[in-house]
Amino acid sequence: MRGASSRARARIFDRAFGVFTFLAAAILIALPVLLVIVIAQASWPALIRFGPAFILDKTWDPNLPPITFGAAPFITDTIITSLIALLIGIPISIGAAVFLAELAPDWLRAPVAAVVDLLAAVPSVVFGLWGLYVLVPYMRTTGDPLLTKYLGWSPLFAQHAGSQSGQSVLTASIILGIMILPTISSVSREALRATPDSQREAALSLGATRWEATRIGPLSYARSGIFGAAVLGLGRAMGETMAVTMTIGNSNNVGTSLIDPGQTLSSLIAINFGNALPLERAALVELGLILMGLSLLVNVVARLLLRSMTRMGATTA
């Protein structure tokens, strides 16, 4: 009797447990679906009011009639800051990954990798604080004047009336470049470590120097993984909000110079969302929609690259 009733109880628990885990999985599916619905619905007023011109329009003016909202400057600055961040971040992070995966002796590898990874644990608002009180003053007094002095002939580094604060597209890009270091570095480190020793030895046995062996061995073998890591970094840079908001200068005008202040999709949402009237709020949500589209695209590409790497590993290892 007791055996039978405990078996029945176990069956009930099994069922209940199944239901709970099923519900949790359903939530995992429901959240992104709901997210798309809510964002689309909340941006609807702006979508119908401005149509596709929203993407190309350069004005963001909630005050003077006719009220116009256009996303072009913010899309541009989002892409520019992320690309410069990659330019800064890729050589450093991949260099560090090569050192930690290929060159460092065993006793040095684990502790240094752990310390380097701690950079990922620093909250983005702290990066912003550091950027605002350390990097921005440096750019204002030293960095920007130097750039203008030597590269001012190029419109990219020309100084304008509004660009003397040190807060600029360039400053934000530098911060982003630092913030994506741990992402790119740790993912490419894993890709490099996954390279079989036989690849290194194949190169060495042909008479390659240590650098050459690294280049035609692990760096080639892991290249799609490293590329995937860089694209993941790009995704992180595009979505980053606080550090950018605090260092980019928050100007809605389109500037030509990198040392002019600017505004990204995420920083404008952060700055304006709280005080926006309904139509502007809808337009800000539409910016969120665009940002989401950009980062989804980038993340899917990164994942495909990283997956193609695992496939290659399966065929040669």
Partner: peptide
């Protein structure tokens, strides 16, 4: 798949979403 997608969405967009709800 969707959990992976979710982790790639910028956190400020999550803020907009939850505010919207």
């Amino acid at each position: 798949f969707l959990a992976d997608v979710m982790t790639g969405i910028p956190s400020i967009v999550i803020g907009v979403f939850v505010f919207g709800i």
